[in-house]
Design a protein around this nucleic acid. Structure first.
Lengths: 210, 210
DNA sequence: TTAAAAATAACCTGATAAGGGGGAGTTGCT
DNA sequence: AGCAACTCCCCCTTATCAGGTTATTTTTAA
């Protein structure tokens, strides 16, 4: 089988032992080829574009610029490559920043070798590989708090406010009077114990009421 | 091994052939037990609470109330159960509504039997099982448009506006003058060709600029 | 079927924010 | 040197916001 049909992989990981482990794993798996391995983004930046990888395994804790901050820069250098985050961190802020910055998948480092290989394959096939806990956190981010003190209408109105619409416009679009919208907002503020749009939106989002 | 240690599964699926297929698959897998199977939510509603399932497989296209609309009702009846959507539909609106309504996972019907079993196991272990394409769509929903016409500062300010903050408050929090914020907003409106907060937020969100 | 909760609407006051016009200086990066 | 980005200043008018209080109708659930 020609080497040109292999999936080309780059690795950016500062721990030499781990990095060499990945190089060994991927290099010895038929259908996969390691075309570059670097201990930092700064090292990778010079050569990675000419490596022309299909998939990049990226650590988040790197010396110098972090993996997450490096993400957009890597995407500029190799726009067609899929970037898989491979890290020990499972903090939601990191996960969402990584995904927002263009990561195509997010794996934790306890992922067994065969799963890393299948994740590389999966991302090439249009998937979005994630470790189980990560996927749960991502799904949870879509979910509402069922114990919201807000009624359905209040929730609806607060959502409209969160889109920047004025009370008058909300009233028109919901076919109710401006005074009614104002009443609802007053009730929302009382329930959430706030005194402004911004605080209501923040409280509601923090508590997943909207 | 005691049956009480098995994972208890309910199935809500209108197609009898498919439903019986799942019943057979799960019922004949060691460690899993089917405690209920129903062709609609209306049928399930009466008995599902006493079935006390750990996991519920839910179809989206059901006669009567749809699976997605049934989700919150099922959660009320069986708050502790994990609900896995099992459907042919891969439309983003359906996916995000399902996840927002409390689904713990989302599988397409071409999922091979062993993957369905492992998804049930995975959700019990704190995972969020999704089919590959679904996971990709979910991840994509976090990502920004790299071709935004807005500068970094403009993007930052529009994000602040989208939280409901006033221009004055934004100015204070960014340590810049109110006039500067106003200038940025004017530029944002020109670039996006809008004349209000609400329209700017909508355009920016539609195009993933924020 | 009846009580409670939710949704609706009105009146009031004062303060502030929003949108749009123009111009202009200062960085920082090629 | 030139450009993009960021910063700040002045003008103007209109619309919106936050808060108080009360009250009716409609829905929902016990």
């Amino acid at each position: 089988m020609s080497r040109d049909l292999d999936i080309h992989v780059c690795i950016i990981e500062d721990d030499e032992t781990i990095r060499e482990g990945y190089v060994y794993l991927i290099g010895n798996t038929p259908g996969y080829k390691v075309v570059g391995s670097y201990p930092s983004f700064e090292d990778a930046a010079k050569k990675i574009a000419s490596d022309n990888p299909d998939v990049i395994l990226l650590d988040v804790e790197l010396p110098g610029i972090s993996g997450i901050d490096a993400l957009p820069k890597i995407k500029k250098l190799v726009p067609e490559a899929y970037i898989l985050i491979l890290t020990v961190y499972e903090q939601d802020i990191l996960i969402f920043r990584a995904l927002g910055n263009g990561a195509a998948g997010y794996l934790t480092k306890n992922t067994p070798p065969e799963k890393i290989i299948s994740a590389i394959h999966e991302v090439m096939e249009g998937g979005g590989p994630m470790s189980a806990h990560i996927a749960r956190m991502v799904i949870s981010s879509f979910q509402r708090n069922e114990a919201s003190p807000l009624t359905r209408r209040e929730t609806e109105i607060l959502e409209q406010i969160a889109t920047g619409k004025s009370r008058k416009r909300i009233a028109q679009e919901l076919f109710i009077d401006l005074e009614t919208v104002k009443s609802h907002i007053k009730n929302i503020y009382h329930k959430l114990n706030v005194h402004s749009k911004a605080d209501a939106i923040k409280t509601a989002k923090d508590n997943k009421f909207i």
